[in-house]
Design a protein around this nucleic acid. Structure first.
Lengths: 212, 212
DNA sequence: TTGCCAACCAACTAGTTGGTTGGTTAGCGT
DNA sequence: ACGCTAACCAACCAACTAGTTGGTTGGCAA
């Protein structure tokens, strides 16, 4: 057998990512990860210390990945519809990242602090500023909320495929349906542009009370 | 001790709901459920057969609950913004239902068929028809997609609180922030009404190609 | 060639988990 | 009062799980 600690480490991490994306922290098995990586599970403890630490490493790696992949950047000349399209296709091409975030939201609920909280906040702060700059938006509070909406629109179908299947009543399960949904979501984003552009789009309170 | 099989059954189910919402199927412990219900875990097997069957029962009960609570009905005189507000507040008041749906999406990914697939599809079909009728929408395909969007807007903050916290940069963590976000989301829904109302809102293709 | 260390693994351990079993007892019908 | 059934539980079991250990071996330096 070829002895290569670097590669073994990497194989282990790759296998762990697949396992954790599929089963979460509690549902994942270290034996399965080791087998998938083609090595002994003792290597996990030698390289990463524990199952939890391996999980944290996978999570941080996933965060780095989405930053590097730039699906959350608003590119030159793009509008918010294009942004939604890109987020949508990014997650559709590989749902595993979205799954990792969902596992985190569910399993880390009790945790006192989020993994890499500061870095992640800084990252999103930059993205929001970037988008505000390119769209000429001055109200950062609204820009933040709009950013949340855009990510929600782009990621929802990957996060809750069940719901899309059920509400779509089977019409959205094939390629064409997914494409139609993507364009519809992009349309929503474009239609909502008035909520962040200047002061003109102020008729957004819906009813007259405003409370619920 | 008071012997009351009906009540024991109910206590067990209630405890199971809390446990499964908190930890999912894999992360839940039957001992913990039994202890929380104040009885022996053997009762679980006497009444529900297995951990999985208990889980399915909890899931079906949760589905019944959301149908009975009518947050997904468009009431008389409401617009889509009001609908989003209601869904938002419904999940905010008790996130456990949303968590159950998320666990289902993640853990039941490999399952061949969804629990109660037909009933759930029928339920959403009715809701979509109901909304289309009240809003005077004729294109059911678009109404379905709009329904997905409305649920996404209303449920996103509960589903991925992490993301709202991070993107919101701390500004949306308190009561006031949550309220502001709700109104913003409702505004998006109202702004998107053109996409389902008649044929006029046809400028939703964003670019000129339409393909991606 | 030889010595050494890091990479590696089979086998093991202690603790946990879903599920079972044998026996106890509350409470109802007679 | 008495017997029977169903509700109930403590103790148990086999399987599994994260983590450890003792020993083997590839490959590099001297």
């Amino acid at each position: 057998m070829s002895r290569n600690p670097e590669e073994t480490r990497a194989r282990l991490l790759a296998a762990a990512r697949v396992e954790f994306a599929e089963h979460g922290l509690a549902g994942s098995r270290v034996d399965r990860i080791a087998t998938a990586a083609g090595c002994n599970k003792e290597r996990i403890y030698a390289y990463y210390g524990s199952k939890e630490k391996l999980y944290d490493t996978v999570l941080e790696k996933a965060l780095t990945q989405i930053r590097a992949a730039t699906p959350l950047h608003l590119h030159e000349g793009e509008d918010m519809g294009d942004f939604v399209r890109r987020v949508y296709e990014f997650h559709r091409a590989d749902p595993s990242l979205m799954r990792i975030f969902m596992w985190e939201a569910l399993e880390m609920d009790g945790r006192e602090t989020l993994v890499a909280d500061q870095e992640r906040r800084a990252f999103y702060r930059d993205r929001v500023h970037e988008m505000a700059g390119q769209l000429g938006v001055t109200d950062l509070g609204r820009m933040r909320m709009m950013f949340i909406v855009l990510v929600a629109l782009g990621a929802w179908a990957t996060a809750l495929p069940n719901l899309v299947h059920l509400i779509g009543d089977g019409e959205l399960d094939d390629e064409a349906g997914r494409d139609a949904l993507r364009e519809f979501l992009a349309g929503i984003a474009v239609a909502g542009r008035g909520l962040v552009e200047g002061e003109k789009g102020m008729e957004w309170s819906g009813g007259q009370g405003g409370d619920a």
